[in-house]
């Protein structure tokens, strides 16, 4: 148990610390790298909770794909972020005030938090992981049966996002030579080579 507790505090503190670094580091590339560190430690926390499937998904999807694209974009953008931050301090007081108010409100809500007496009965997925199955099985059962409709809706949303990205960015450029593999393969010798008997000194 000590080991688990220690790991928890290790993951949690690194996660929070790198979260702070994400917003405070001067270099955007460093910020993204800290973000990755934060994801990683969050995955570690998932593992500690026994949600290994989620942990791996977090690493694969967020660290392996999303953050790579973040990094990709941030590296290629030639934006002087220090310049962008020039006016930052100017807005700090009002930002801090809003943050403070939100914090107080959150504390008020959480302080008086109550759970409905019937809440336990309403839960759907309490016991999904118990009963000897791994949590990928349990998740799969829930997603593909109980929440199948939502799962399909989510797929449709992704389709819309894809169409949207293409609509807004794809440009048909004219005058670009494109490789057409089908045509290349279909090209035969007779179509492109002509054997000519040329008399010397005459040319074609």
């Amino acid at each position: 148990m000590i080991l688990q507790t220690l790991s928890f505090y290790l993951f949690a503190s690194i996660c929070v610390a790198s979260g702070v670094m994400v917003i405070s580091s001067r270099n955007p590339v460093h910020a993204v790298l800290y973000l990755i560190l934060a994801f990683f430690n969050a995955a570690g926390l998932f593992v500690l909770m026994g949600a290994e499937f989620l942990a791996m998904l977090l690493v694969i999807v967020y660290v392996g794909a999303v953050a790579v694209l973040f990094l990709f974009v941030v590296m290629m953008l030639d934006i002087n972020f220090t310049e962008l931050r020039q006016g930052f301090l100017q807005y700090l007081p009002i930002g801090a005030l809003v943050g403070f108010i939100l914090l107080v409100e959150l504390l008020l809500v959480l302080g008086s938090w109550a759970v409905s007496p019937d809440a336990g009965a309403a839960l759907v997925a309490t016991n999904a992981t118990v009963g000897g199955t791994t949590n990928s099985h349990a998740l799969g059962r829930l997603i593909y049966t109980h929440y199948a409709f939502l799962f399909q809706c989510a797929g449709l949303i992704l389709l819309i996002a894809m169409i949207g990205a293409i609509v807004l960015t794809l440009r048909e450029r004219v005058g670009v030579k494109r490789q057409n593999v089908g045509r290349q393969v279909a090209r035969r010798r007779e179509d492109s080579v002509v054997v000519v008997q040329v008399d010397s000194g005459k040319g074609i």
Binding site: V109, V115, S116, A119, L123
Partner: peptide, 10 residues
């Protein structure tokens, strides 16, 4: 918040 109170979204 509602879910946290009621334990359901239904």
């Amino acid at each position: 918040l509602v879910y946290g109170f009621a334990g359901s979204t239904n």
